[in-house]
Simulated assay, not measured.
Amino acid sequence: MIVYSEVSAFTQTPGQGNRAGVVLDAAALSEAEMRELAAFVGAPETVFVTRMGGGRVRVRYFTPTQEVEFCGHATLALGLMLAQAGHWHGETLELETLAGRVPLRLVSEAGVPSQIWMRQQRPQTRPLPLSLRAELAEALGIDSRTIHRGLPLAAASTGLWSAFVPLLDPLILDALEPDFAHVEALCGALEVGSVYAYAPMGVNRFAARDFAPGLGIPEDPVTGSAGGALMALLAQEGRLPVRAGRACGVIYQGHALGTPGEVEVEVEMLGNSVVAVHVGGCAALEREGTWTRQPEPGR
């Protein structure tokens, strides 16, 4: 019997934000079993701990259909479960992921975990040709004139690549009717995991929706990895105010699915260069369950 948890990430309310599966003891599971368990849990991503000790935790992430290098909301969920299970009391902790090492920081209030922060990978960015506006708009079900000309249209990653498409207004964002087959084809052509549409709500506040049908996630409710990459991209392009070497912002996501969540981001800057990206938020345990391993053939 394998014990797993279902955790709501980037929210304090169970059932809101983005659901993640967490398996704290996956050392004995094969890759095939991790895939099977992730499909059974059915969350956008499930994180598996394959080794723990010495201030480091080795993890793997799976969607219901495949393995991915990194997942922000599942990392947040894992941090909560490690703290609640007594494996983490706020000391230095570093995750070993396929995307690289991810340090975690725990914030507690009166001894109760309240927020988990992760330092994501150094951002990578590449421009997207402006000629793609029409095709991206068609894939999202909108007119190309509703794409914002003053915000960056680009691909970026702090662990998982996304194509970032700026829109003029959050109302346009809410009304998106994506053609998922077209979105998946674009993701393949652009070598990204998702198409992430965003719209400004203020100087450093944005609404967003993230579509990743090629990863088995038609729409991801709240996306920590893409949230960090977006804020790094905006800071690098001079679209966020910088004070004392830091640019801070909040992304609101999940409202279109009825599961709102908030992603907080701090970007460390040195001149015009991004030095580090920190993504944080709350998490809440939804439920716990068990999964029975099936005997391997021949045993």
Rank of each mutant, 00 (worst) to 15 (best):
I2T: 12
A27D: 13
A28F: 05
A28E: 13
A28T: 13
A38F: 08
A38S: 15
E45W: 06
G53C: 09
G53F: 09
V57A: 09
V57P: 04
R60D: 04
F62M: 11
P64I: 15
T65V: 15
Q66S: 14
E69K: 09
C71V: 05
A74T: 06
L76D: 12
L78V: 14
A85M: 09
G86C: 10
W88M: 02
H89T: 09
H89W: 06
V102G: 03
L104P: 01
L106M: 08
S108Q: 15
Q120F: 07
Q121R: 12
Q124K: 14
Q124C: 09
R133V: 05
A134Y: 04
I142Y: 00
I142V: 15
I142R: 01
H148N: 15
R149A: 14
P152Y: 02
L153Y: 00
A155G: 13
S157K: 04
S157M: 03
S157H: 04
W161K: 07
P166A: 01
L167P: 00
L168V: 06
P178S: 08
P178V: 01
V183C: 10
E191G: 04
V195G: 03
Y196K: 13
P200S: 07
V203Q: 12
A208E: 03
R209N: 03
D210N: 15
P213Y: 07
P221N: 12
T223Y: 09
G227Y: 02
G228H: 07
A229C: 09
E237H: 12
A244K: 07
G249D: 06
G249W: 01
G254Y: 09
G258K: 11
V263C: 02
E268D: 11
N272T: 12
S273K: 09
V274S: 00
V277C: 05
V279A: 10
G280K: 02
L285T: 10
E288M: 13
W291M: 14
Q294Y: 04
